[in-house]
Amino acid sequence: MIKNKYRRYFGTLIDMHILSYPLLFLIIILFFFSCKNKSEEPPTLTFNSETGYTASDRVVAIGLPVKIGINGLSSNAPITNFVITLTTENGTETALDSGLYTNNLQFVKNISYGASSWEKWTFTIMDKNRNKSTKTITLTKDTNSVFGLINYFPSIKLGCQNNSTFGSFLYPENGYVCFADSTDAIQNNIYIITYYALLNVPPTDYTFGSPSDNDVTTYYPNINNWTLPRNEVRYKFDSLTVSPQQFDLAYNDSLIISNYTSATVGKRKFKSARPGYVIPFEITAGAMIGKRGLLKIISTSGLEDGFIEFAMKIQK
């Protein structure tokens, strides 16, 4: 009765009202889910698409340099974490996991394509509210590409800091070894330096370093006078999986670039080298920048007056 009474005056409106209930409800639901709290909005991540940059999946040749420009933008909470990972058929490596504090991130990742059939590069940014954005670029190997040539030095002896028989400084281009007092004039050629690290905290022993190693000047003070920036080598410090036998059998750089990839995070020193270790390394500053190699430790002897004997294979 009441419905009919109202229907006489408001019939159309009532009909509309009945029909609009579900519509209104839907609108409310959509509004609720579409209108995110400002703190829930993730930062935006894009790739630089200018000339010279790779912004999408592509086919590349072994060793081909690839440049990826990453742009991150956040309108409220700053971006505080930036992660780059590399996934291949061999597993996943973390190339970068860095803390930062910015609303505008601009980063360039230089990649040298390795030995895998494919490489999936994943870029993730996270803001202080732990909202994330992720994008990937997959590189596929050009099946017509070939591995590069290497130089092989079957036995190099580098002395520790008090050794008067063997020098401690190595030019890896030609295997030239020299003592500290003759290196100032050729500092641009020196990349690998060895010492017995008793003065470090905590102390270690047979150590491979480079002119940019923070502790090398403790043992070779003359390096304090070298020009900046100095040459730098980074060593893979964990997950050493190359056996001495594999090292011996390597005739091109396939073993090198599969063990020191563009995702490998190396350190400027390798502590406590032991016979049997095969240590991947990369030259990261200096004229030979980008060259990678392997050191196979043959023997160690003595203390501060001792030496390290090793074999080296390095990209030409």
Partner: peptide, 14 residues
């Protein structure tokens, strides 16, 4: 930060 110039930030933790 690095001990050598340009004293690059090597780790920031928040």
């Amino acid at each position: 930060t690095d001990k050598l110039p340009p004293f690059a930030i090597t780790q920031y933790v928040l």
